[in-house]
Design a protein around this nucleic acid. Structure first.
Lengths: 295, 295
DNA sequence: CGCTTCTCGTAAGCTGAGCCGATGCTCGGC
DNA sequence: GCCGAGCATCGGCTCAGCTTACGAGAAGCG
């Protein structure tokens, strides 16, 4: 019988690409991961990994086994969820991951709602880099997380995870010193998120769709800072509704026909866990009215 | 995350009823099983067992968890089977369980067929008490087994196991010293299998269907011995085709409108294992022609 | 071309999960 | 009432599996 513990390592390897990263994610030494994968390979009787350069790649048999591992892990997750269902009086920790602007604008109301429903529940919120959310969920460091996606960025469904329908949809705004269209900012300096982030990709693509490649001057992730810089005449930026709560004087927001959607994500099979479904319900009822609507 | 090793113990408990039996089946001490189930219960957070008298019973939550355990174990079995599929050149041991008459009449031809197809395969045949076949399969002591069922005995599908369609269907015979019908044996002494066996149940029900309760004189399991006793005028008996190969002189076989069906059984999910499906194929091709038909 | 760096594998040693045996307790049956 | 069957608990031990340390091979860089 294949060992699930080892299958989990193989799955993480499939997602993270290197043994070192798996070890990092699961708080092991790389040596331990290597040893366990060797054992798995021996008891599988089939080569699962092959060294390519200084990394390892999964063989087709390995990738196939990962598919099964996903299914098994999802089923175990579901079994745990159903188990939690039978014990009444929801209690214990619920580890929630979120991106910064939701943490500020959404999470407090959601937690208040949740506390009213289930006083025993102990929500623990952690701001997490959106790129690391998947790994944190799979590694069991988080139970549920708020993730977002942009119109222009193709959403890749991560295997092993599941997401809800969008909890809310925000419009995007062009933040500048005067009203105007995107295309008029061809020559203006831009303030964008750091490279290799979802926000950055989205902003660049928006500019490209308007017919130009943006000149990036500042790389800032925090929307409050971004708006302050816009107010100081340092450039223009794209900000979502949640990041544009209190624009400083002198900053003009122009609504664009682009949207950011926020969903809840969790491990596949965990959607029926009472704490997680309660969180999602709280999310839906506590979401500020008019978020998807006017200005 | 629930531990699959422990879930397996819980499943066995659901089938076998006592911790001692689980320990026996899996070659552990009862103490080890008890400890592991305690840990499982603790990490489930819900009572799974309750002491009723001097045994333990599963709570509803426990039974529900067993359902999930079955699913997980079947999935793991399937993953292992698919893995074996990729390694070509079928090799290694295949542990086959069988009831005695099939061992004599069917298995040799099947093994010969199988050896021709896959020389590397090492079949290991064990005669197993039909009542213990399920436990032996689940415990991993057998990979595949020949099991039979009778018309008159309701076949209860064991969870955790899967069976093929009938491999062959044998007619049943009334073995006596003269031709005759079942109903005519109302007053004759009977030779039957020991109590609490499938054969015994079948024979008793057949008599009841013919309108009488049989007087059982001898309790013998081996059909050759049974026929010898019939020949010695010690009574009459019901024997399946496979058990009636060479009736001794003086014994007359009268065919009855009743049948015994033989199937192959294996752990749920293992049906796609190449060695097992090869065995089933060999079974179908090597089965003696006319077994389901004439005489 | 050689140095550094990053990655994976192997070897040696240690720790704790989990097994066994013994004992105690609580039921049910004779 | 006694006895046996079945489960839980307690010490003690063993081995699976982790860590640390080291070595080998492959990219990147001056």
């Amino acid at each position: 019988m294949l060992d699930v513990r080892r299958l989990r390592l193989l799955r993480e390897l499939a997602h993270l690409g290197t043994i070192a990263a798996v070890a990092e994610a699961l708080s092991f030494s790389p040596s331990a991961v290597s040893q366990q994968l060797s054992v798995l390979e021996k008891e599988a009787g089939v080569p699962l990994l092959e060294r390519t350069g200084r990394r390892v790649t999964l063989t087709p048999a390995g990738r196939n086994l990962v598919r099964h591992a996903e299914a098994v892990l999802a089923l175990l997750e579901q079994a745990g969820a159903e188990l939690a269902h039978t014990k009444r009086g929801l209690a214990g920790p619920l580890r929630i991951g979120t991106y910064p602007s939701a943490a500020r604008a959404i999470i407090p109301a959601v937690l208040a709602e949740l506390a009213g429903w289930h006083p025993g529940l102990e929500p623990m919120v952690t701001e997490v880099d959106p790129a690391a959310v998947g790994a944190a969920l799979r590694a069991g460091e988080l139970d549920v997380a708020l993730v977002h996606e942009y119109d222009l960025v193709p959403t890749d469904p991560e295997p092993g995870l599941a997401v809800t329908r969008p909890v809310f949809t925000e419009p995007m705004y062009l933040a500048a010193r005067a009203p105007g269209t995107l295309a008029e900012q061809r020559g203006t300096p831009w303030i964008m998120a750091p490279p290799d982030t979802l926000c950055r990709t989205m902003a660049v693509r928006a500019c490209e769709a308007a017919g130009f490649a943006p000149r990036v001057r500042h790389q800032i992730d925090d929307f409050t800072t971004v708006l302050a810089l816009v107010g100081a005449g340092q450039g223009v930026a794209l900000v979502p509704h949640l990041g544009a709560a209190a624009p400083p004087p002198g900053v003009v927001l122009t609504r664009l026909p682009m949207y950011r959607r926020t969903r809840a994500a969790f491990r596949a099979g965990a959607g029926s866990h009472p704490a997680i479904s309660a969180f999602v319900s709280a999310l839906h009822t506590a979401v500020p009215p008019g978020l998807g609507g006017g200005a």
